[in-house]
Each structure stands twice: as structure tokens, then as C-alpha cells.
């Protein structure tokens, strides 16, 4: 029994019968479907169909004039084994893994400490995590460009300390820095949600049973907060793997990553089938990791 946007269809009957009940049930189901339909259709047209098109394109042939939707082949997928492509895939994966690990290392103690605080402090701390989460991603990456720039604060500082003109901009380190900066909130939030839900008495009990704090972390806190660890890792790893803006702003010519490589296929190389195949790989990684996550009993991302 709830509000609905569909006018009530009348089912004529005086005395209740199983048919009447079934008809009402049916009517309610139809109302639900009817209400879901606009968004459903929208996503079907602007998400599912595009998805199918990407898959279709990845099997198409590239010609001099563009893409020919015939002569189906798996050349684009074969090219994933090319040394150049393999390098890019490897480098992207490595960078994404490092980014994820750094985020975990920073976020776990952060989220843990946050959940030991009073309600008021917790909420305040949360607000100050949410602000960067909401702040324009491009601008936040750009800020690092300014800091790491040729005579920005970073080089001045390193010169002052006597490290010489250490140059970070346009290196992998700068890209990792930008990615961590960009995605750290995505790690903190699910971790905090998972840790906060744990009953503190379990930890106390484990402190009674185990000698050290580390063991209680290892055997109680960590397993119980695992859903948060996995959710946060997916939320950091997947977009890092597909990052495009960050390497474009902070990375150099020699640090092409998967995301930028895909963009290149479309905006300059005009090799759409190959670009489609690369996108599909990225999507497959995402789908596999989320399916694994839900299989392992995770509920929300």
C-alpha cells in the first residue's frame, strides 16, 4: 500500500475472492513496473545499447576512412598482446595497485581512529572528508600541477632543503600522487562505514583472549572490516586503472596509461575497434571485481 503515480484501476467485485486478490497483486506489480519504466528505458537506451555497440565495435575492422562494421574479427583483442600495449596495461595495473595500497594504508588507520571518536567529532571529521569528495576533480588535480610546477612551492622547498631541483611533475610518482589525492575519499568512506558498524565489544573480548593489539587487529578487526576494504579497493582501483584526467595533467609523454591510451584511440588515432576492445577490457575488470565482491557477501558499494 503506497503512493503511486498511476491512477487506480478499478477491479469490480464486492466480496473478496482469490481472483480479486490476485488482480490487486497484479495491479500493484504493474504499478511498480510502470514507475520503474522511464528510468529503465532511459538506461536501456543510453547505457545498455551503447554498451552493446562498444562490444560490437571491438570486433569490427578499421579502414582508412574509419570503421567498417563488417569483416568481423578478433584482431583488436589480439593486439592486447603487443609489447607496447602490454607495457601500458602492466604500467596501468601497477600504478593502480600502488595507488590502492597507498590509499588503504592512509585510510584504514584514519577510518579506525575516526570510529573511536565521539559522535560529534566523527561527524565533523566526516564532513572534512566529504568536502574534497565533492570538490571538482579536475581542479584538485590542477592544484598539484601548480604545486609541482617548475617554480612552484615544491621545487622551491626541495631547493631550499638542498635536494637540488628535484622534478616530480610528469613522472609516475606525480600521477600516483594525483590519483591518491583524487580517490582517497572513496577509500575512507566505505572503510569507515564498515568499521563503525563493528561491535566494539568484540574487540574488547579479543583483547582479553589475544595478547597483543596487533593480533586483535589481525584476527578480529580486519576480517570484520573486510567488506569495507574490498569495497574501497574496488572504488579506488577501477577508476585509477581508467584514469585519464590525472595522467593528462600530471603525467608525461612516457607515462601513457590505459585510460589515456583509450582516449587516444578515439580522439587522435581514430582506431575505434581497438579503443572499444580496450574499453571492454576495462569494463570486464570492473565487472569481475564487483561480482566477486557481491559474491563474497558485500552489500553496498
Amino acid at each position: 500500500m503506497t503512493a503511486t503515480l498511476e491512477p487506480e484501476a478499478s477491479i469490480d467485485a464486492d466480496v473478496a475472492t482469490p481472483e480479486f486478490e490476485a488482480a490487486r497483486e497484479q495491479q500493484k506489480r504493474r504499478q511498480g513496473l510502470f514507475m520503474a519504466l522511464p528510468a529503465y528505458l532511459y538506461l536501456f537506451v543510453f547505457f545498455v545499447i551503447p554498451l552493446v555497440i562498444v562490444i560490437v565495435y571491438s570486433f569490427a575492422t578499421r579502414t582508412r576512412f574509419g570503421t567498417e562494421l563488417s569483416g568481423w574479427n578478433i584482431d583488436s583483442y589480439r593486439r592486447l598482446g603487443d609489447p607496447l600495449v602490454r607495457d601500458i596495461l602492466l604500467r596501468s595495473t601497477t600504478l593502480a595497485v600502488i595507488t590502492t595500497l597507498i590509499c588503504l594504508l592512509l585510510a584504514y588507520p584514519f577510518a579506525y581512529y575516526m570510529s573511536t571518536r565521539s559522535e560529534k567529532t566523527r561527524n565533523l571529521m566526516l564532513v572534512f572528508v566529504m568536502i574534497p569528495f565533492w570538490t571538482n576533480f579536475l581542479v584538485r588535480n590542477y592544484a598539484w600541477r601548480v604545486i609541482l610546477g617548475s617554480d612552484g612551492p615544491y621545487s622551491r622547498l626541495s631547493e631550499a632543503i638542498g635536494f637540488g631541483e628535484g622534478r616530480l611533475l610528469f613522472t609516475n610518482v606525480a600521477v600516483i600522487l594525483g590519483l591518491v589525492y583524487g580517490f582517497l575519499p572513496f577509500m575512507i568512506l566505505p572503510l569507515y562505514a564498515a568499521i563503525e558498524r563493528i561491535d566494539g565489544r568484540l574487540l574488547e573480548a579479543s583483547r582479553d583472549l589475544y595478547a597483543s593489539g596487533f593480533q586483535s587487529f589481525r584476527h578480529v578487526l580486519l576480517p570484520l572490516s573486510m567488506p569495507g576494504v574490498v569495497a574501497g579497493s574496488i572504488l579506488v582501483f577501477v577508476p585509477s586503472l581508467g584514469a585519464y584526467v590525472t595522467p593528462a595533467i600530471l603525467g608525461g609523454a612516457k607515462t601513457t596509461l590505459l585510460g589515456s591510451y583509450i582516449v587516444t584511440q578515439f580522439l587522435s588515432a581514430r582506431d575505434w575497434p581497438f579503443g572499444a576492445a580496450l574499453s571492454f577490457v576495462l569494463m570486464a575488470v570492473m565487472l569481475t571485481s564487483t561480482i566477486v565482491y557481491f559474491r563474497k557477501g558485500g552489500r553496498t558499494l
Binding site: A39, Y40, L43, F46, F47, V48, P50, L51, I53, V54, Y57, I234, L235, V238, P239, L241, G242, Y244, G259, I262, V263, F266, W272, G275, A276, S279, L282, M283, M286, T290, L301
Partner: peptide
């Protein structure tokens, strides 16, 4: 289906919509 646009990387969604 509703969850997918949230977790899919920007680049992939961009490619999908471009094509």
C-alpha cells in the same frame, strides 16, 4: 543496472556514448 553507471570508469562510459 542502476549500479553500473556508478562504478563504471568515466572513460568507458565516454567511449560507449561516443559510439
Amino acid at each position: 543496472l542502476l549500479y553500473l553507471p556508478i562504478i563504471i570508469p568515466d572513460v568507458t562510459m565516454a567511449v560507449m556514448l561516443l559510439l
